[in-house]
Amino acid sequence: MSQKSTNNEGFSMEILKQYRGRSLAQETVRRLFKNRGAIVGMIFLIVLIVVAILSEFIFDYNTQIIGMNPLALYAAPSAEHPFGCDNMGRDILARICYGARYSLLIGIGSVAIGLCIGIILGSLAGFYGGVIDNLVMRANDILYAIPNIMIAVVVVSILGTSPASLLFSLCISAASSLTRITRAAVMQIRGQEFIESAYAMGLPTWKVILRHIIPNCLSPIIVQCTLAVGNNIISASSLSFLGVGIPVPLPEWGAMLSDGRAYIRSAPWMCIFPGLAIMITVLALNLMGDGLRDALDPKLKK
C-alpha cells in the first residue's frame, strides 16, 4: 500500500475498490449521485440551459427583451410580471431567462478556452520542466500578480465592450489557474513509476502524456473547471456592473443590475432578481463542484 495509507487498515478504499470491481469513473458517478447537493445543482443547471435555449422561441427579442413598454414602467412584481418590470417596462423574468445564455456561454466558454490553453501549457511545463516551465510559470506569475478584474479591464478597453471580448478577457484568468493546477498535477504524476513503465513499453512521449498523464490529473482539473465557471459568471457580471462588460441593452444579468442600481429606491426588484439569478446559478455550480471533489477524492469522505 502507499505511504499515505491511513491507520485503519481495514478501511482502505483502494482495497475496497479491488473487491467491488468497479472502475473509478463508475465509482465517482455513484458517489456523485449520492450527494444531494450535487443533484440539486445539476438539475438546476439543466433546467437553466433548457430555459436559455427555449427563451429564443418563447420571447420576441425586439419587443419583449429590448423594446419599450410604456404601460408597464417600473411595474411591481405581480401575477402578470412575477419579477416586476424595469425602467423601460420590460418584464424582468423574460430578460433574466433570455440573459441566461450570456452568463452560461461566457462562463462555460471562457473556461473551455482556458482549459485548452491551460492543459497544453500546464502539461508542457510540468512534463518538461526547465526552460519551458520557467517561461510558462513566470508569465503566469505576472498574470497572477494582476487582479483578474484588472486584466479584464485592460482587455476590454483594447477590444471594446462586447460578449466576445468579455469571453476572451475571462479566459485568460481561467487559463492561468488551470495551467497552475495542471502543472502541479503533472509534476506529481510524472515522477510515479507507472509512467516509467509506460515508457518502458515503448510508448512515444506524446502518447504517454495523453494516455497516462492527463487522465490521472483529471480530478483536480474537473473540480477547478466547475468552480471557475461559477467564478467567471460572477466576474462577467461584475465587469458589466462596472460598465466594461456587455453593452446595453443586452439583458446580461450584471448589466441589468447595473441599470437597476439607479432605481433601487423606487424599483428594488430591478436589483434583487438579476442578482438572485447570478447567485443561484453560481450556487448550483459550486454545489456540483463540491460534490465532484468529494466524489473524486474518497480520502475526504467521512
Binding site: 456592473f241 450584471g254 443590475l257 428594488p268 434583487i272 442578482g275 453560481v282 450556487l283
Partner: peptide, 22 residues
C-alpha cells in the same frame, strides 16, 4: 459559506443598502 461564495458581492452591497439604508 456556500451562499457567501456564490454571491456577487456588489449585489450583496446593493442588498445591504436596500435593507440598512433605505
Amino acid at each position: 459559506a456556500l451562499f457567501g461564495v456564490s454571491m456577487p458581492n456588489f449585489w450583496l452591497g446593493l442588498m445591504l443598502v436596500l435593507l440598512f439604508s433605505l
